[in-house]
Design a protein around this nucleic acid. Structure first.
Lengths: 316, 316
DNA sequence: ATCGATCATGCACCTATTGTGCATGGTTAT
DNA sequence: ATAACCATGCACAATAGGTGCATGATCGAT
């Protein structure tokens, strides 16, 4: 649990606190107890001779100095990651621990094979996979719990493409299919357009969730406002709802149907073909690390394999 | 003893090892025991998954990866120092520990007043002064045992003016006087030239010492080769030798005669007036720190005071 | 060759840093 | 007013990290 190193772990903790703003959340994210986080930050202030935190209501918040330190530590972390990566590459060596993070369908389709491959090619490397949603993946990267995350890119998120803390690389654009009940008028079709389905009752995630913004973006692009009938979190649930005839929904191509009863998957055609962009994210500077490079290659190969399999599928 | 922070202390230890090449010397310099240094470096290799050391005869030496890491850590350290300095300045705060280093006459004339001033202006700052020769001062800076050093600049040394690990600032040029026995024919003079004293038996430090290079440089500048009769380490000893009539010697203006018997101090005039340049050195990046800035100002004020007192003296 | 010096390292042991779990006190929302 | 939440202090436990000494390996000098 304590594989952080080189940069004082208490500074890492401070950075995490800088993100989530409360001791409790910091503890949850870092894997420490709240008392430990509190003690760490107190000790950090003592050793640096800086006041970093102030009481604020029932919580605490960063002082100006604290915010300054958090922001200024970005290049420091990046520099270290970069140095480590270069040293690894120069010495043709590989670290002993490697943390991966990703959301469910990516974890199943991309992360699992990656972990398996790494496990066989580097027998004495302990690979750890954490399933987490994209936002949490970024937090886990900051907390140095994981070293590489596979996530869906989100424009609406607080982590921009050019965040100084991360480097990102597109792996694949995963199209969204539409799933409809088997007894739906369009069920015998192969493809459909969003316009054709505009008046259907839709099943989506709760507002603010990972895919909701993708959902709304897709429909605003075609200029219609879908009627949201039901909300579900897991794809399993989406599928079940559709199977029960409650409505229609979007399902990423990567998410398998598992031969669900009474559910048909249709490709979306027409002007707007919504996709989710799946990217790999690492801490800035670490991208040159041999292990990261190897992982990215494996991911890319898998992503390409998936894409070509789809093409062959379509050729049938 | 363990005020190092933020950058993993084991990396600091590795850097020190990179300089002195042996575990024992590293231990001496860092203040750890040899076992501790050995264990630290072993642990560092484990946690980084890199092989940094190799057996070499009865000792160990850095691998290519190790050297790479040591060299590459320079900017990392500088970046941290810079960040800390900026945060300190931004928050108008001051660290809790401050280490000073310097050689004897600088320690007496410049460092002691500095420490006294800091002690009074920052009552809860613990100031530590280490007397050490210039080369060791640089090592102590690397080892993070001290934060600021007052040293004589040496062109022949392995630490150049532009070393990426340090920043240096000239405090004052301290002229070298000549000291001769009271019964010497020139004893009644106020000044002398090096040429006039070329044939005297000279007292100097051992070859390779801090001042020996200064000594030879002065005489090569005037084109004569002095006869070195005796060697002494401490100025006290130099003075005693001269007082005993064993020869003549050079003595920095900053080093006091303490009313020694039978010794006269003469200013050196003529084409070549040897001086030793006294500079302050800090770890790169830390120069913006408020405490460092304040210290440098105090040092500069003291240096200027010394210079003006000399001018007034000469006016008499 | 032999002996002594020099180095690094392993081991037993000790210390103090740093973690957890629980209780407490202050602060906000219902 | 009461409940929920948040940070923190304290007793206690684990463990990282230190010292000192003994050991083994290598080199230089006699």
């Amino acid at each position: 649990m304590h594989n952080r190193c080189m940069i004082d772990p208490r500074l890492i903790t401070l950075r995490v606190f800088g993100r989530c703003g409360t001791i409790g959340a910091t503890a949850e994210l870092t894997g420490y107890s709240p008392s430990a986080v509190s003690a760490q930050l107190r000790e950090l202030q003592r050793v640096l001779g800086m006041q970093l935190l102030t009481k604020d209501g029932r919580g605490v918040r960063l002082t100006a100095t604290g915010r300054f330190l958090v922001a200024g530590s970005d290049p420091l972390i990046a520099q270290w990651e970069s140095l480590r990566a270069a040293a690894m590459a120069a010495g043709d060596q590989v670290q002993s621990h490697f943390g991966l993070g990703g959301f469910s369908s990516a974890a199943a389709q991309l992360l699992a094979p990656l972990a398996a491959t790494l496990r066989s090619t580097h027998p004495l490397l302990e690979v750890q996979v954490l399933e987490a949603d994209p936002a949490r993946c970024f937090d886990l990267l900051i907390a140095e719990r994981i070293d590489l995350a596979v996530i869906v890119a989100m424009q609406s998120d607080s982590y921009g493409e050019d965040d100084p803390r991360f480097e990102q690389r597109v792996l694949l654009d995963d199209p969204l299919d539409v799933i409809i009940p088997g007894d739906h008028p369009l069920a015998s079709r192969e493809t459909a357009t969003l316009e054709e389905l505009a008046s259907e009752p839709w099943i989506t995630e709760a507002a603010g969730s990972t895919y909701h913004s993708l959902f709304t973006a897709a429909f605003t692009a075609v200029g219609v406002t879908p009627r949201i009938a039901h909300e579900a979190v897991e794809w399993e649930t989406h599928i079940a709802f559709v199977g029960a005839g409650l409505g229609v929904g979007l399902l990423p191509r990567l998410a398998p149907l598992h031969g669900a009863e009474n559910v048909v998957r249709l490709r979306i055609t027409g002007r707007t073909r919504p996709t989710r962009r799946i990217v790999a994210a690492v801490r800035r500077g670490s991208i040159a690390s041999p292990l990261i490079q190897e992982s990215l290659n494996i991911l890319q190969v898998n992503a390409n394999r998936i894409l070509t399999e789809r093409l062959e599928e379509e050729d049938l």
